[in-house]
Amino acid sequence: MADDVSLTMGGSTISGWTAVRVTRGMERIPADFDIALTERYPGEADVVVNEGDPCVLSIGGDSVITGYVDRVNDQYDAHNHLLAISGRGKCEDLIDCSAQFDSFQFMNATAAEIATVLAKPFGISVKAAAGGLQIRQYIMNVGDTPYSVIDTVCKLSQLLCYENTDGDLVIAPLSTDEAAGGFALGVNCKRAGYLRDLSQRFSEYRVYLVGVSSTVDAGNQSFIEYTVRDTMMPRYRPKAFIAETNDAGATVSNQHALWECNRRIGRGNIVTVTTSSWRDSAGTLYAPNTLAALSMPQLKLIEGQKFTISEVTYRRDMGGTSCDLILMPPQAFQPEPINYLPLAQDVGAAIGQ
């Protein structure tokens, strides 16, 4: 069968799965899968699958998830054998476990360097398209997961972090790669939806400078430091933020107001697509962090407008083969600007005093 799904563990490979659900996403770390098969009158030479086994799930000749088997459900009766397996990518350990680093403090390190140190004990490689800015100091709390730390330092560098098909952690900016052929209703798209939502959008986003003097009126319009307007919001709906302190505070607060506006616009325009193929017109599996041009005038979308694929789910069951995708405008995925402040007792060390 074309694009047969196979699961390889050690030297053994199982294929012929009759029920498949494989999901990868930009904001879904790790990738995960549920697969199952039913044998009628099963023999005694069945391949043994154990929970915890390292595995590679492939579609056709392409690896899709490299990770571990989490759960195995074996069921037998007089006539049938049901084997159901669930697993996740290697980065599951970065999500589930607590971070370990002797000093619990990183000094003058980039996001890529911090991620590499935290991922190494779990046998996970870090693929960094960009190292990011040098962070003077980052202090972990006991119990922090590696991913929570990595996610924070990536935001400081305005980078994304997600899992690739080899189970590596990728640190990179938003991609400009494009899926060949895009999506067109009636051509390669059998079903599509377009959710337009204004409920979490505002007409303007204001950043206020707040003084420490008792004579300063924080609500006075003269203390508005920065304003971002959403011209597509049809009525007056203001959202206010207080500018953060320290050298970078105002700059980061202004960037955050712009990010809030753009992200809410992006998250308020969600396209869902179902196609019968798992691959684009060039034969490449659909993947997250990929642009796709949309030709869907029926949904009042601008012809050729490009949305970013957020999540991909490959499915196969009694209803046939399909691929479900979630797409949003690229600004929906820009990392949040944040202002990290070192703990007071370590500020001197952080600035070399």
Rank of each mutant, 00 (worst) to 15 (best):
F101G: 01
S98P: 01
I135E: 01
G132F: 01
M140Q: 10
P146Q: 05
M107L: 15
D197E: 14
L198C: 05
V153T: 11
D102L: 13
R136F: 03
T110I: 01
V149F: 04
R196Q: 10
L174P: 07
A109H: 09
L160D: 04
A180Q: 12
V149Y: 01
G181E: 04
A184T: 14
T165G: 08
Q134T: 15
A179Q: 09
D102F: 11
L133T: 12
F183E: 00
A184D: 03
G143R: 07
P121R: 15
D102G: 07
V170Y: 02
A130Q: 13
M107E: 15
Q200Y: 07
L156E: 08
A130D: 12
L160E: 02
V170G: 05
L94E: 03
I114T: 01
A129K: 10
L198W: 12
L156I: 12
A119K: 00
D197M: 08
N141Y: 03
G186R: 04
A112F: 00
T110H: 02
L156S: 04
D177S: 13
C97W: 04
D102T: 14
A130F: 06
G131Y: 06
D197G: 07
P146F: 06
A172E: 07
L185E: 09
K155H: 10
T165V: 14
Q134F: 01
L94K: 00
L156F: 07
I114F: 05
Y194I: 03
T116M: 02
L118G: 10
D96P: 04
C189Q: 02
V117Y: 03
G123Y: 13
A112T: 02
A112Q: 00
L169E: 07
R196P: 01
S148N: 06
G131N: 15
A180I: 07
S175D: 05
Y147I: 10
Y162D: 09
S103C: 09
Y147H: 08
V142M: 11
L185W: 07
A115R: 00
L169H: 02
A130H: 04
C161P: 02
L159K: 02
G143Q: 10
Q100P: 02
P146E: 06
M107T: 14
T145C: 08
N164L: 08
Y147N: 07
G143N: 05
G131L: 01
E178R: 13
K190M: 15
L185G: 08
A172V: 05
S125D: 14
C97D: 08
R201W: 06
R191S: 14
L185I: 14
S98L: 05
G182R: 03
N188V: 11
F104I: 04
D151Y: 08
I95N: 01
V153K: 00
C161E: 01
R201K: 11
G186F: 11
A180G: 06
N108I: 07
Q100S: 15
I139A: 11
P146G: 08
I95K: 13
A128I: 03
A111L: 03
C161K: 00
R201S: 04
G181I: 10
I95T: 09
V126M: 06
E163R: 13
F106M: 13
D102E: 15
P173N: 03
L159D: 00
S148Y: 05
G167Q: 10
A111D: 04
Q134H: 04
